[in-house]
Design a protein around this nucleic acid. Structure first.
Length: 221
DNA sequence: ATCCCGAGGG
DNA sequence: CCCTCTGGAT
């Protein structure tokens, strides 16, 4: 009973947070630029530990030369590395992009698969990347995208005590209605970038402060 | 737990 | 200098 009641309270608070975020960022969408599911997958792999702004800076040149899975699969590794270098982790990312595209060509007919298990079988693709591709590429809501922002804000907002992204995702999936899973993530990310920043969270201007156990109240001492 | 890794902010 | 940015594999 206690647990059920507690979960209900938390879930209600999660919904209030989501409602506030929807009001705050009505137009929030995936901020990566892409034309096809393959390009979305590649851009998402590139977005690891890197701002989406920087990803969008390299992908136009990348996709102009290697627009699809087969051209990426057959590209000289060094050309890929040079094109994506500024996004960091460029050797791993180039290897993973190429490996993923080779498998997409050889096993999935050159198209990004729409099943979670098949996506997870691609090198460099785990739940975060798979969730982004399924949601924004195909409109399939399979889980909650947990990136560095979702992880940080979920903790600060008291929506989870976990630190493992998989467990955080499980908590958020319990707290939120399935159709809103990606809506929540995308807006949390916007809020994490603009207000609830990693270094210096701007609690004074935060519209979620009244719902947040971590908000700093500066008037008390 | 550690490694991969560039770029920008403080 | 240190920290952070839509992580994933070993």
């Amino acid at each position: 009973m206690n647990i059920t009641r507690k979960k209900t309270t938390q879930s209600k608070r999660a919904l209030e947070i989501l409602a506030t975020l929807e009001h705050l960022y009505p137009e929030a969408t995936c901020s990566l630029t892409y034309e096809t599911p393959v390009q979305l997958l590649v851009a998402t792999i590139l977005s690891a530990q890197c701002t989406d702004e920087r990803v969008n800076q390299v992908t136009p040149n990348l996709f102009a030369r290697f627009p699809d899975a087969s051209s990426l699969a057959n590209a000289p590794r060094e050309d890929l590395e040079i094109l994506i270098r500024s996004t960091g982790f460029y050797r791993n990312k180039a290897k993973n992009i190429q490996g993923a595209c080779q498998k997409i060509v050889s096993e999935f007919g050159g198209e990004v698969p729409q099943q979670m298990e098949k996506l997870l079988s691609l090198p460099g693709v785990a739940r975060k990347t798979a969730n982004v591709v399924l949601a924004h590429g195909f409109g399939i809501i399979q889980g909650v995208t947990v990136d560095t922002h979702v992880k940080r804000l979920s903790g600060r907002l008291g929506l989870t005590k976990e630190t493992d992204p998989i467990k955080i995702e499980r908590d958020l999936m319990t707290l939120l209605p399935q159709p809103d899973w990606e809506n929540f993530s995308i807006r949390i990310i916007y809020h994490g970038r603009a207000v609830c920043k990693a270094r210096k969270p701007d609690c004074d201007r935060c519209k979620l402060a009244h719902l947040c156990p971590s908000a700093e109240i500066k008037s008390t001492r």
